[in-house]
């Protein structure tokens, strides 16, 4: 079963350059991120046409800054390296699946 990727400033570009990747920008001190986390873990196991990853903004500030993340949790869906959709705040699994499906079309 696929697990969510742990993304860092170092591996980010490589991991997202092909296909669809949903990235959860989070930090351990953020309450709503604790709610989003388990949803992301389940999503990673259930979607087949996309990768799912988490990036800790505290340790990886360069990437967070590059994509203008100023609020967490922020979820960005990338396609072939480009950000397609940015979602701010906690999102439910079914909504995220639908967004991924729409982009995969």
């Amino acid at each position: 079963m696929p697990q969510e990727l742990t993304l860092t400033d170092q591996n980010f570009k490589d991991e997202i350059k092909q296909g669809i990747t949903l990235v959860d920008f989070w930090a351990p001190w953020c309450g709503p991120c604790q709610q989003q986390g388990p949803i992301i873990e389940e999503l990673a196991k259930e979607v087949e046409n996309a990768k799912v990853g988490k990036l800790n903004v505290d340790n990886n500030q360069i990437t967070a800054q590059e994509f203008g993340v100023m609020s967490i949790p922020t979820l960005i869906i990338f396609k072939d390296g480009n950000p397609i959709e940015t979602l701010v705040g906690v999102h439910q699994k079914e909504d995220l699946k639908k967004k991924i499906q729409d982009i995969a079309k």
Binding site: C30, G31, G68, S71
Partner: peptide, 16 residues
């Protein structure tokens, strides 16, 4: 929202 507007200081203060 998410670009400087926030309702969660403890989540987003870090970015400022």
């Amino acid at each position: 929202k998410g670009h400087g507007v926030s309702s969660c200081a403890t989540c987003d203060g870090f970015f400022f």
